[in-house]
Amino acid sequence: MADRAVERETVLSLRETIARIENRRLPGVVRAAKAADPGGFRQREEEEPGRKALSLGVPDLDDLLEGGLPLEGMTEIRNAETRDAGAAAGFAAALSVLCQKARLEKGEPAAPVLWISQSMASNEAGMPYGLGLKAFGLDVRGLVFSLPRTVKDALWIAEAALSVPSFCAVILEIRGNPAALALSESRRLHVRSRAGHVPLLLLRQSGHEEASSAFFRFLVEPAPARERPLPDGSMLRGSIGHPVFNVIAEKSRAPAPLGFLLEWNPHDRRLYPVEPLPAAAAADPEPAHSVARLSASSGRSGRPQALGELVAFPRAS
């Protein structure tokens, strides 16, 4: 009897270890065994050990991420082309805003966000812009930016930053798939991030899919924004509203890549899921009933012009 109890204990502790390594929730059996108190007292409901996640406020995405953005460990965000870098940087900035907000809500002292950008990445896709990030919802007073020359230097700074408990998030921006950031280096960063309890967002600019130690990898693509809402509930035609991203979870526990259309609202500082635009509406700028109910007035100054707009083409000669 005693032997069986020891065996069971061993198995349970192994399962717990595996769950911790895989960053999953504790299996139910383990949880029940841990919760049962030999004295019969009810234990205080504790936060689940071994896993800290930040809910992104989008139920489907949170389910996919098993609770939310891992607050200990690496998450990779990549974009396919350099011209999409704005969307990927925006998504990374949105996640760090959420980290900042979560800290404030928990009543912890504000911590800075460190943005490490290999200089070529920032030269190609633009420098982070303070006013724009402020308008995006990021508290730029707590932003520290670093522009190391090489990937190696960037990795060194990231590693140094992950070992101090001072940052609320670290964004590491790398261009392409450099050999200096292969599987073993990403493993190293990931372990550092888990040990230091600082979330690391690896922002891979115009890179391919590559095996890494990140829990999740997102491919971020730009998506057409919704129109600006007017006070009466209608939309302002032709306006560009809050940014929308098409976030595809390439690496996750889901069997196939899942895509989400997410809108970032800088005022609420949260993500909202949005429905895809109907294809026809995007393609056809004319309203559905384009026939005028009244006959057009003619010969007046207010009549619509017969010709289209005049466009300036570059001169041939």
Binding site: G90, A93, G132, V311
Partner: peptide, 18 residues
């Protein structure tokens, strides 16, 4: 205001309304 800004603006060829 954009989230990323080019330190020196890059010239583009544009076709625009006059």
């Amino acid at each position: 205001r954009p989230q990323r800004l080019f330190p020196s603006p890059e010239p583009v060829e544009a076709v625009a309304e006059v």
